[in-house]
Computed example of a mutant assay.
Amino acid sequence: MSEDLDLANMRVGYGQAATAGADGVAQHLDPAWLTGDPPWLALFQRWLAEAVAARIPEPNAMVLGTVDEHGHPATRTVLCKGADPGGVVFFTDYESAKGRDLAVNPIGAVTFPWIALERQVHFRGRVAKVDPAETARYWTARPRGSQLSARASAQSQPIASRAALEAAAQLSATELGGVDGTVPVPVPPHWGGYRLEPVSVEFWQGRADRLHNRAVAVREGDRWVTRRLQP
């Protein structure tokens, strides 16, 4: 590793200046901010809207963690395509690595890392496939090129080269009238949505001297309990 990369001494000065968010430096994140039913939804939607307004790259990107049949964890970034009282939604190939993980261990965790705003949100809970009608609605809203790529790619499987990948994509496009064609692209049978149904949602706010604020909503039976966590 280059001697110029002194990882041990890399620091971010959280809480030194007002952030782009509505909380700013003067207001400390508090469990009292978690209100409504469920208590995490309104604050999450507000923070997401503020991440969009602040032009955070890919504000709906979230790091998804799953566990395979051997107990080995893996993370990757996916895009959140829905947030409602039931949880957060993403779409993928059911036969991908994450799809295979979720088939044997239907639990997961996601993190929205809005570091530029000194914020993160963490969801943990069970993951279940969405209704096929919900998948179909989202699929029709996707760009045609993305639809064709999803049909062409055996996600997470090895392939010989970039050229082979592009050839498979071209074949997929040709079969359905091309990238600019008008023939509807059907939803692949192995592709669809998942909803992470949270049992806990934690909000994190960076503060000076690493004395960060953490507030969490935890599902206990049929009710939600909110509390502050130590940093």
Rank of each mutant, 00 (worst) to 15 (best):
A83Y: 00
P85G: 10
L64P: 12
R227Q: 13
P38G: 11
E166L: 14
P189K: 03
H122P: 11
R162A: 07
S2M: 11
A141F: 03
G71K: 04
R126H: 15
W114R: 13
G192C: 00
W33F: 13
V127R: 11
P57I: 12
Q155F: 03
A32G: 01
P132W: 01
W33Q: 14
D6Q: 10
L117H: 07
L79T: 09
L117K: 09
A133Y: 03
A169G: 07
H70W: 06
G178M: 06
S146M: 11
D222S: 06
I56W: 07
R137D: 08
V218H: 09
A54V: 05
F112Y: 07
W47Q: 07
T226P: 10
D68V: 04
T174R: 08
S200C: 07
R46C: 08
R228S: 07
L29K: 08
V183P: 00
S2G: 01
T66F: 10
D30R: 03
Y138T: 02
T19P: 14
T111E: 12
T92F: 01
I159D: 03
H122G: 08
P113Y: 09
G13S: 02
G99M: 01
G108K: 06
A133T: 07
D93K: 01
Q120Y: 11
E3R: 13
R126L: 15
I107E: 06
E3G: 13
P188W: 00
F90R: 05
R228C: 03
V25R: 02
C80F: 11
A42P: 09
L7M: 03
R119V: 00
N213V: 00
K81C: 12
A109S: 14
W204E: 04
Y138D: 00
L171N: 03
W191L: 09
A22N: 05
W139A: 08
G178H: 07
S2T: 13
P158K: 09
R219W: 07
P188Y: 00
L211V: 07
A53D: 14
L29F: 07
R142L: 14
H212T: 08
V130D: 05
P184A: 01
W224P: 15
P73I: 15
R76C: 11
G65T: 15
E197M: 14
D4F: 13
P106R: 08
V130T: 13
V225F: 01
I107C: 05
R100L: 02
P189A: 06
L79N: 03
P189F: 02
Y138R: 02
N213G: 06
D101E: 01
P39D: 04
L34R: 12
V12S: 01
A164W: 03
L43Y: 05
A32C: 01
H72V: 04
R55E: 10
L102A: 02
W33A: 13
G177K: 01
S156R: 00
K81N: 10
V121L: 08
I115L: 14
D84Y: 09
F123S: 11
T226I: 12
Q16V: 04
N213Q: 12
A154Q: 10
R76M: 10
G36P: 09
F123E: 12
P184M: 00
T35Y: 15
Q170I: 02
A116K: 14
Q170D: 14
I115A: 11
F123W: 11
L64A: 08
G193Y: 00
A17T: 15
R137H: 07
A208I: 13
Y194F: 12
L29Q: 05
Q155C: 04
L148R: 01
G192S: 00
R137Y: 09
P59Y: 13
V52K: 05
G13N: 04
A83Q: 04
A164L: 06
